[in-house]
Design a binder for these strands. Structure first.
Lengths: 343, 343
DNA sequence: CTGAAAGCGCTTACAG
DNA sequence: CTGAAAGCGCTTACAG
């Protein structure tokens, strides 16, 4: 049961002092240590599979090389793709991402923050599952903090957010450009900036195009509710020809309902989804056109920014960076049905 | 910019030594420190919001109070619910779960393991997205290790796995009990124990019931492939009356295809899903009956076991713990259609 | 050119 | 009943 080798073990084996080991292994031996001893140290380290104890390193250097991530479960689960991209970006820069579930409430958030600060994280990133307003906890005042997919109303830190207004406007515009004028919007019922903006952006596009306002159908975040609402609406008079879903699970419900009604997609009804963090819309049949939330770029650039700040040591200007949501045109959208005008 | 208070700061404010602070704050002051001083220390700590530096604590105690988790992306993403339950169980016991993405390959796994060992994790848990055979890396030989949703062929550590044979047998039995005898199985194409066992278990149930062998349809893990296969098969002669899907995304595809074909579920076709880690099957319309993988209990009991081992310090007998997969009967299954025999 | 010492923030025997 | 010392594993001035 050999315990992990320490610098002392390496020094003993190489017949030098701990300082020498440290200098050699950290590349600061150049003009100082004789070539022979350097080789001895390197060989001893190799032989013992020596790796410095990161805990001791942290204590010594007052840097943990760790970034804390605060996150929680939202309308469509955890923001998996943002967390994944954050983790990899941090890792590539030599940082560990410590992910903490705040449960979405201030009490657990407080515990999570304490736990991160106890472990001396160098920075904290907040990764929100849905775009919301978010005030960083007081306890983080001294810690570099960055917000991803949420906005600080007090503008005290850098935040990164998708252009939700633009995204929903794009979604509506896809349908408008194809001639649709009777368009519905299946929305989440959460009282968030996200839902607000998704409705507002799409509605603005309708107004700008001079078509009637979109019919807002509030489905909650449940797939089955989206199904029920879609079915009900499609059974009624003057059926919709276009439908926007604020996230992918709603699109599954809508597609299923329309399909059961015997409608052809996109022959009778065109469907567009927003978000698609779970990669569901893209896999459906027909594949559902999506104005996708750019989870990966947001997370990558966010973490890169945070690390740059860590290296420079400066405090960046608080600002909001907005990311465009790319349009993925797919088979679920088509021209407005010609017989539609006859009904 | 007040830096975090240290024990020395508390000692200074309370007018005592660091040792006294430590004893009082760790509840070992009883017969040793006067009541007055104890109060002074507690008050000083409160005033400075003192919390011990976890890094220093780790170095001193040779325990990091952290458990490393190795995981990767599988057929249906990361094993989110297992990770979530693991994190919370660890947290409740005072441990931090450090989640590392191994990318599913040995090279990145090696880097992840090194990184965890550098940080002196007290134990490691491997959380596999799909049931596979898994040999713990050599480097973990000295570290308490537990496998969740994977099996060590060499039986060197404790592993926790769902009863996949039983689960798929149950799925088939649901249909058999309802009178079905023409049953298909939409399967993942991965060459894993999981796929093997899911096919084998269902097939064994068919044999035991004396019905024809299940028709195995290999769909890969793509929803769209499940759609295509289902559509093709349903268009053919002697249509299936029952369908088992090895995971929830395949069930979405199958349901969509059957619905587009104008079939009634379960009137014309009964559908059962396995796994449902993403909670999709349960949300569909009709809700799809599922033999669910018990992600939460597996993770909770796994972590609890690992922590018990950490506390006792003993090495547990390597063993495989098998968890039963509960049956969630839902609207997607019904008796075999009566007109079926006439075709 | 190299080793001995100090110190990061803790706790725990050990003196007094 | 309380403080001074040692030590966890490192690195970095500082002597020699």
């Amino acid at each position: 049961m050999p315990r992990r080798a320490t610098a002392q073990d390496v020094a003993d084996l190489a017949g030098v002092s701990r300082s020498t080991v440290s200098l050699v292994l950290n590349g600061r031996a150049d003009g100082n240590i004789s070539a022979t001893k350097q080789l001895q140290v390197i060989e001893a380290a190799r032989q013992l599979s020596y790796r410095p104890n990161a805990v001791a390193l942290s204590l010594r250097s007052q840097r943990s090389w760790a970034i804390g991530a605060l996150t929680w479960r939202g309308a469509s689960g955890f923001p998996e793709s943002m967390l994944h991209a954050s983790w990899h970006t941090a890792k590539a820069a030599g940082y560990l991402l410590m992910i903490m579930d705040t449960n979405g409430d201030r009490k657990h958030e407080g515990l999570a923050v304490s736990s991160l600060l106890d472990r001396q994280v160098d920075a904290v990133v907040v990764v929100a599952p849905d775009l919301v307003e978010y005030r960083p906890p007081e306890a983080l005042a001294q810690t570099p903090t960055l917000l991803i997919n949420c906005l600080d109303p007090d503008r005290t830190v850098v935040s990164i957010a998708p252009d939700e207004l633009g995204a929903s406007a794009s979604a509506a515009q896809i349908l408008i450009d194809l001639g649709h004028s009777r368009i519905g919007l299946l929305a989440d019922d959460a009282a968030t900036v996200q839902t607000e903006q998704r409705i507002e952006g799409a509605q603005a596009a309708a107004v700008a195009a001079g078509i009637p306002p979109l019919e807002i159908m509030v489905a909650g975040h449940e797939l089955a509710a989206a199904y029920a609402l879609t079915q009900e609406r499609l059974a009624g008079p003057r059926p919709l020809t276009g439908l926007i879903c604020t996230h992918e699970r709603l699109a599954v419900g809508a597609l299923l309902a329309a399909t059961r009604q015997g409608l052809d997609i996109p022959g009778d009804l065109s469907i567009v989804s927003l978000e698609d963090g779970e990669h569901l819309a893209s896999e459906l049949v027909p594949a559902v056109a999506t104005v996708r939330r750019p989870d990966q770029p947001m997370a990558e650039q966010g973490i890169a920014l945070l690390i740059k700040q860590l290296i420079s040591g400066g405090r960046p200007e608080p600002q909001q960076l907005t990311f465009v949501c790319p349009v993925d045109l797919r088979a679920s959208v088509g021209p407005v049905p010609t017989d539609h005008f006859r009904r």
